[in-house]
Amino acid sequence: MKVSGALLPQKKTTVGEQTQMKLDELPLFEFEKLSTATNNFHASNLLGKGGFGPVYKGQWEDGQEIAVKRLSKASGQGVEEFMNEVVVISKLQHRNLVRLLGCCIERDEQMLVYEFMPNKSLDAFLFDPQQRKVLDWKKRFKIIEGIARGILYLHRDSRLRIIHRDLKASNILLDDEMNPKISDFGLARIFRGGEDDEANTKRVVGTYGYMPPEYAMEGLFSEKSDVYSFGVLLLEIVSGRRNTSFYNHEQSLSLVGYAWKLWNEKNITSLIDPEIKDSCFEKSILRCIHIGLLCVQELTKERPTISTVVLMLISEITHLPPPGQVAFVHKQNLHSSESSQKSHQSNSNNNVTLTELEGR
């Protein structure tokens, strides 16, 4: 079994010949064209900032809107993530993955050009008291199913076998019809080997609250890592709450822990976002909560594969096993972990990924 490490030469300051060969497979845009499209990268077009650098909205002369990721010259990790994203996403195409249109390597600039998502990211809707009203249950279920199908493509159906490693609400973009598109492949890794392969890394990267215990504590990652993150996302979508917030303050429960507590008390309907509470959809919503709890099982082997999750969602698998012990019942505190102390600081804005291990 082989797992790729960084997907480019280790030197982070220059783009070498191997990197250039990979870039040549993509459409190349001139700097001036991107500068014109973004009004010289004007602040009014800024969509967000991340560890990679700022992301701008732009528009071609024909009216087509784009999103431009511009590598920050001050970014220490940006070049590696830039090339990783080029290598991974340039080989992928699926309706639930954001589409890479091309890139720019000019004047010491490195930029990625994506299709523009007019509704920004899922977290902008889900965790906003007013915007979440737009997301009725039908829209939320469509988003859940779309994310699952996107992950299935990454794990099983694409030319490569990809572990995303940073699935979270801010990395799920929404198009004009509220279809979800998985974005930000800067931390993704290509796997080669059997179904149950795991890899180990000393550089734990990702986002606090979405990491499974085996990865956060031991640096082990696999397809089941993405399944765990999907389970957290599913519980967030159903409840309209962030996993990283406190619930039941006396016990300092995470959202996962709170859902597990309610499940054991046979009071799981209390988890449902009041905006989507409807007796007509209750059975479907409760089924999704059940699936979410199966995805966040503490033991990797107890979590379903994403292919099984899709079959559960569309009711091809009708009987769901009872969930066992979930991971991270209490709000995580990883300050004692050496890898956490050395991890990258971060924030999430729109479709920008930053690595983090500490709470926000």
Rank of each mutant, 00 (worst) to 15 (best):
V256W: 01
S279E: 15
K266N: 15
H290Y: 06
V256P: 01
I289A: 08
I268M: 14
K277R: 15
N267P: 01
K283S: 13
G257S: 02
E265R: 11
P274V: 04
C280W: 00
I285L: 11
K283I: 10
D278F: 08
G257K: 00
G257I: 01
S284C: 10
C280T: 14
N267V: 03
E282H: 08
W260V: 10
N267G: 04
S270I: 05
D273I: 06
K277C: 14
S270D: 13
R287W: 00
L255M: 09
C288T: 01
P274M: 02
D278A: 11
K283E: 14
L286E: 08
D278V: 09
L255V: 01
E265A: 10
G257R: 04
I272D: 08
H290L: 07
Y258Q: 04
L253S: 12
C280E: 14
A259K: 09
P274C: 12
L253N: 02
I285D: 06
E282D: 11
R287I: 00
I268N: 10
F281T: 12
S284D: 14
I289R: 04
L286Y: 04
S270F: 10
T269W: 01
S254V: 09
D278H: 13
A259I: 03
W260L: 05
H290C: 03
E282W: 04
F281S: 15
E265T: 10
C288V: 10
I268A: 05
L271C: 13
C288M: 09
K277Y: 15
E265C: 03
N264L: 07
S254R: 09
N267Y: 08
W260E: 04
K261W: 07
I276P: 08
K261E: 14
W260K: 05
